[in-house]
Structure formats: structure tokens, C-alpha cells
């Protein structure tokens, strides 16, 4: 199958602190990779490197065959291929939901306004937020904001979605509505890399699990093996912290 993302021996360092090194990861089209690991293990930083929000000190990242590098001239068009959703607060507060969705397709991709609007409305209906199209972000709940943020990434037709702990800042009762959207995206064959702490969700959505600890990939595998039969002690310990 076609490879969307290829990460070769990537290292991230801040002066004398190494966040991670020798990271290797290949993601194929339609694959859902879920990354888990303890806080501060470097998983969010890793995700941010994938669309050059963070620079890397060694190795290379290829997205759809193109090198990801913040200094390159067409970094804008490379970033379009990776739709990113963050933990929270990333909607533009001065724009309505619809304006939030339409900004990038109209200004960056120069697409026709009418056509973009029609697509935005279809997507909003799909995530159950059509009635909120003219609301401002401050009028939405956390879960609604995250669903809008997902749609805002989708409408750019990315090759891959990068979801960075998108439910971590939500009240528990809102987690479900957001994860349901992600699950339905997985079912329709979207390529995704998901960083999360929701283990049950990870199991349900993942084609492949990756466990990062201390800046390196400790274990990876299919979800059944990963959760039911972890090979490394470190992963066993980590998974135990989620069960009482």
C-alpha cells in the first residue's frame, strides 16, 4: 500500500536535552496509528515535528514523498497535507464556526466560496453541528469546539490527520462525542496519527499501536497484542496505571 508518511531516524534536541532520537515510523494510506506513552515522553513533540511546528535536529520526515522542513519554500502546501487538531483553544475566536471552516480553503487554496460553504455545511451536519454554523467559538462547549476543529482540518482535504490529545482538556461527558467523530473517520479509511490517553478508544480505533517512553519507541504492534500481551515490562507497567 501507498506510504503517506515516512519518518527516518529523526532526532529532536533542545540544546543539551534530547526529547527523542532515532524515531522511525511508516504510515500507510488508510492506516490509523495511535501513539501512547507517559506525559513528557515526547509524543506530542513528535506529532508537532510531523508538520514542522517543531524543527528536527537529525533524520528526515517525508510526507507524501515531500520533505517536511519549516524552511522550505512550499512548506505551506506540505502543511495542508497534514491536518492538525490540538488539545484545545485553537479555533479562531473572532470568527464564526462557518468562517473558521472557510478561511483556509478560500484564502489558501483559493477555492470557490460557494462550493466551500456547501462542503462546510455538509461536514457540520455530519458532526451534528449544523445549527451552530453562525455561533462564535465562545458560545460552544469544549466538545463542540473540538468537533469544529476536526472539520476545519478535514475541509482542507489532508492526506493525514494528526490529532494531539484532542480530548485531554475536555470534561469527561464530552469526550465521547468527539471520539465518535474520530471513530467514524477511521471507519471511512482516513489516515490518522492519534496521540491519546484514552486507552479503550485507542484499542477501538487503532490499526497499530505505538508506545513511546523516554524519547524512543519501546514497543509497537497491533492493538490486541499490544494491550493483551505486551512484550516489554515498561509497557506492562504503563498499561497497569490505567486499570484499578
Amino acid at each position: 500500500m501507498e506510504e503517506i508518511l515516512k519518518v527516518n531516524n529523526v532526532c529532536k534536541r533542545y540544546e543539551d536535552i534530547t526529547v527523542f532520537e532515532n524515531m522511525n515510523l511508516t504510515v500507510k494510506k488508510g492506516e490509523v496509528v495511535v501513539i501512547v506513552g507517559p506525559s513528557g515522553c515526547g509524543k506530542s513533540t513528535f506529532l508537532r515535528c510531523l508538520n514542522a511546528l517543531e524543527d528536527i535536529q537529525d533524520g528526515e520526515i517525508l510526507l507524501d514523498g515531500e520533505k517536511v522542513d519549516a524552511a522550505s519554500k512550499n512548506i505551506g502546501s506540505i502543511r495542508e497535507k497534514a491536518g492538525m487538531v490540538f488539545q484545545s483553544y485553537d479555533l479562531f475566536p473572532h470568527l464564526t464556526v462557518l468562517q473558521n471552516l472557510m478561511l483556509a480553503p478560500v484564502k489558501v487554496k483559493k477555492r470557490d466560496k460557494k462550493e466551500v460553504e456547501a462542503e462546510a455545511l455538509t461536514l457540520l451536519e455530519r458532526v451534528g453541528l449544523l445549527t451552530k454554523k453562525d455561533s462564535f467559538p465562545r458560545q460552544l462547549s469544549g466538545g463542540q469546539k473540538q468537533r469544529v476543529a476536526i472539520v476545519r482540518a478535514l475541509i482542507m482535504h489532508p492526506e493525514i490527520l494528526l490529532l494531539d490529545e484532542i480530548t485531554a482538556a475536555l470534561d469527561p461527558e464530552m469526550v465521547r462525542e468527539v471520539l465518535d467523530v474520530v471513530l467514524s473517520l477511521a471507519k471511512e479509511g482516513r489516515t490518522m496519527i492519534i496521540v491519546t490517553h484514552e486507552m479503550q478508544f485507542a484499542r477501538a480505533v487503532a490499526d497499530r499501536m505505538v508506545f513511546i517512553d523516554n524519547g524512543r519507541i519501546v514497543e509497537e504492534g497491533n492493538p490486541e497484542e499490544f494491550f493483551d500481551n505486551p512484550k516489554t515490562d515498561r509497557l506492562k507497567q504503563f498499561l497497569q496505571t490505567f486499570s484499578y
Binding site: 511546528l53 502543511r79 490540538f86 479562531f92 478561511l103 483556509a104 484564502k107 489558501v108 476545519r152
Partner: peptide, 10 residues
């Protein structure tokens, strides 16, 4: 706000 904006390709 800067990050989500440039992530969208702006």
C-alpha cells in the same frame, strides 16, 4: 493561534 493557523497552510 499562530500554530493552528500555519497548520492550516496559511
Amino acid at each position: 493561534q499562530y500554530e493552528s493557523s500555519i497548520s492550516l497552510g496559511l
